[in-house]
Every structure is written in C-alpha cells, then in structure tokens.
Amino acid sequence: MIHLSLPAALAALLAGLGVYGVLARRNAVLVLIGVELILNAANLLLVTAGSRPGAPLSAGPVITLFVITIAAAEITVALAIILVMFRRTGHIDLTAVPDLSDEPEPAGEGAP
C-alpha cells in the first residue's frame, strides 16, 4: 500500500525546482540540469499514474522508458550544440548578448 499523492507531490516539487534551475543558471550545461529535473518529474508522474490499479496497457512504465530514451537523445544533441557554441564564441553564457551579425566576434569576449 502506498498513497499516490506523495509521488504526485514530489513530481510537482521536482518540476518547480527544474523550472527554477532553468531560469537561475547562466551556464548552458546547468540549464540542461534543470531540464533534466523537469523530465524526471514527468517520469515520476507517469510511473505514479501507471501504478494506479487498473491502468491499461502497462502505459505508465512503458512510456517512462520511452521518455528516458528520448531524454538521452535530447541531451546528446543539446550537448553537441553547447560544444559548438563554446567553440564559436568561447563561452556558454546564456545571458550574454549574442553577436547576430555574420562577422566572427573578437576572441575572449564574455568567456567564463
């Protein structure tokens, strides 16, 4: 026996913390950590819902597995983009004003 409102509350808490993490960090990798937290909140919610008696098709755990896979794919591409950004601009600071022109910007500016 377990009361499912507990994992539901934990999921809500993790999502809120993730949102805060996304907005409170300027390092792109740390922003990704926030995103992971939000994803895990969703996973937890799925598992919780799937644990209700009478949940059909084993949907809860199966979709959780799928989301984990998608998260792996997402983090791969996101990290690739972050690395490219670092190579081009020398930093991964998301609060820096990006150079939208075509000319390469001078080195060292805004590097962490």
């Binding site: 026996m1 009361h3 499912l4 409102s5 539901a8 809500a12 999502a15 949102v19 907005l23 909140a41």
Partner: peptide, 21 residues
C-alpha cells in the same frame, strides 16, 4: 517555479487524493 509547483500540485493532489496502489 513556485507557480509551476502550485499549479501541478493543485491539479494532481485532488486527482490522486485517496488513491492507493
């Protein structure tokens, strides 16, 4: 973040209130 938590909680807690596995 607080708003998100509050929103979700206000949605989910009533949904799962009393539900047990």
């Amino acid at each position: 973040g607080g708003a998100t938590t509050a929103l979700l909680a206000s949605l989910l807690l009533p949904l799962f209130a009393g539900a047990t596995a």
